[in-house]
């Protein structure tokens, strides 16, 4: 007992306790978070015409999950009929090749063998297997050609329930999430709508026309590039960060002011 009390009074004790507490919190946090490892080092790229090159790349990098002929395995779905748009979306965002079979495959930096050539080769190969949505043209996704106000109405009707009003993203069930749209290129946004990657539903061209999709892209791009006129945007996620700021900045600043106002200097005798 005496020893414990002595230990507690040690000048370093408070730091020890603090570090211990921090370590505990950190460990607890780490166990909650899904860890994502960077992709394996890249392999060399193949040669031949598009489809053939694509096929050899596919067999080298994708077949272990999707099967030698893209027919799908227990770890990866079939790619027959998903179309070039799906390949372009998944690979250009770095989601494929996937590093880790978690609840959801995250966006990540591209491995070194993945570039626009290797993507279009594999896309051509997958397109040759069973058709499907193709990669949109530059004109189809040009935000300047869209009507942002009309797109905004569709965006609010179909997208913000998962991706948030400003495309900031949000949580889904069981560890899945809707990613934020700030890094997505107009082409990727279009491809995501027509292919429905991972948990995202499909918005095909016959129900939401390509022109309407371009309007939505125009809205997304315009709003994300627009200045926040009221100061820092606080992540544009609404009242949660506002409440934090009110307490941490507002109340703290006023408490400091109160301490200064009421502080008394001791008179030296």
């Amino acid at each position: 007992m005496v020893r414990i009390t002595a230990w507690r009074r040690h000048p370093l004790a408070r730091y020890a306790v603090l570090i211990l507490a921090l370590a505990l919190v950190g460990t607890a946090y780490a166990t909650f978070v899904q860890v994502s490892r960077p992709a394996d080092a890249a392999l060399a790229s193949g040669k031949a015409d598009d489809v053939a090159r694509g096929k050899s790349l596919f067999q080298a990098h994708c077949a272990s999950c999707h099967g030698l002929n893209a027919q799908g395995t227990s770890t990866g779905p079939t790619l027959i009929g998903v179309g070039a748009a799906a390949v372009d979306f998944q690979m250009s965002t770095g989601r494929m090749p996937a590093a880790d079979p978690g609840a959801q495959v995250p966006r990540k930096p591209l491995p070194s063998w993945v570039d626009s050539n290797s993507i279009s080769d594999i896309a051509a190969y997958v397109q040759s297997l069973g058709g499907g949505p193709t990669v949109p043209s530059g004109e189809q996704v040009d935000p300047a050609l869209g009507d942002a106000a009309k797109g905004g109405e569709l965006f609010r009707a179909n997208c913000i329930q998962c991706h948030n009003w400003a495309g900031a993203g949000g949580a889904l069930t069981r560890g899945k999430y809707a990613p934020n749209l700030n890094e997505s290129s107009p082409t990727q946004i279009y491809e995501a709508m027509v292919t429905g990657p991972q948990a995202m539903p499909v918005f095909n061209d016959t129900t939401i026309t390509p022109e309407e999709k371009r309007n939505m892209i125009a809205y997304i791009v315009q709003v994300r590039e627009q200045r926040d006129p009221g100061g820092f945007g606080l992540g544009r996620i609404g009242p949660v960060t506002e409440g934090l700021v009110a307490w941490i900045v507002g109340i703290l600043a006023l408490v400091l002011a109160a301490i200064w106002i009421t502080a008394k200097k001791r008179q030296k005798s």
Partner: peptide
Amino acid sequence: VEGTGQPIRAADFNSPGGILS
């Protein structure tokens, strides 16, 4: 369809995994 006011042909709404408001 909410936002466009277009009626939907069942044959057009043909991609499994699709959703509309």
